Amino acid sequence: MPIEQQIIIKEATVSEDFLIAKHFYRMWLDLGVPEDAIAPDWLNITLEFVEQARQELSYKAFVAEIEGAVVGSTSCQLYSGLYPNIIKQQHRKYGYIWGVYVEPSYRRQGIAKQLTTQAVTHLKEIGCTRVLLNASPLGKPVYESLGFSSSNAMQLDL
């Protein structure tokens, strides 16, 4: 009988920013984005974004560890919006979850669900009234199982 490995979900430290960025990069590759379509300075772009989000948008990241090795991560922050937000925060303070990633050999063990749950908890603690995320086709059932619903976001590829 296989021994079940203990999954530990914890808040990431600044020293793990590189790993968060690496997972974010791998996520795009897993989604079929060609490597040559990703900016060559992806690491600096991501690290600078995380630093700014940490200062301005209540950014936090969480990692999943098994036997001391990080096997997954996610990031969350206040949603900065696409247009002026004229609605009072007590009615509309959105959080955003991004970069949910689990190493391929550790998928289908509930790790993405645990990471997302921890991000939702953080966003709730800072007063968010709604959580947004963009789901991949494979991630959609995970998020639906947590109560996320499909939105009215529409897109048109040009």
Score class of each variant (00 low, 15 high):
Ala69Glu: 15
Val131Asp: 01
Leu132Gln: 07
Ala119Leu: 00
Pro40Trp: 12
Val50Glu: 00
Leu19Val: 13
Leu43Ile: 14
Gly99Phe: 02
Met154Val: 15
Tyr25Cys: 00
Glu65Thr: 10
Ile20Ser: 01
Glu125Trp: 01
Gln55Phe: 10
Thr129Leu: 06
Glu35Met: 10
Ile9Gly: 06
Leu31Ala: 15
Ala61Val: 09
Leu29Arg: 11
Ser105Trp: 09
Phe49Ile: 08
Gln89Ala: 15
Asp30Thr: 10
Thr13Arg: 10
Ser136Trp: 02
Ile97Tyr: 00
Gln55Pro: 04
Ser145Cys: 02
Ile20Thr: 06
Lys93Tyr: 11
Met154Tyr: 07
Lys140Gln: 11
Lys22Met: 11
Thr129Ile: 06
Val100Cys: 05
Met1Val: 13
Val71Arg: 03
Val14Arg: 11
Glu144Phe: 11
Ser150Arg: 09
Tyr79Arg: 05
Leu156Pro: 00
Leu123Trp: 06
Met1Ala: 14
Gln114Asp: 02
Arg108Trp: 06
Glu16Phe: 09
Ile38Thr: 09
Lys113Glu: 07
Leu31Glu: 15
Ile8Asn: 12
Ile86His: 13
Pro2Lys: 13
Ser145Gln: 00
Pro2Ser: 14
Val14Met: 08
Glu65Tyr: 02
Val70Asp: 04
Val142Glu: 00
Met154Leu: 13
Trp42Leu: 09
Lys124Gly: 07
Ser151Pro: 05
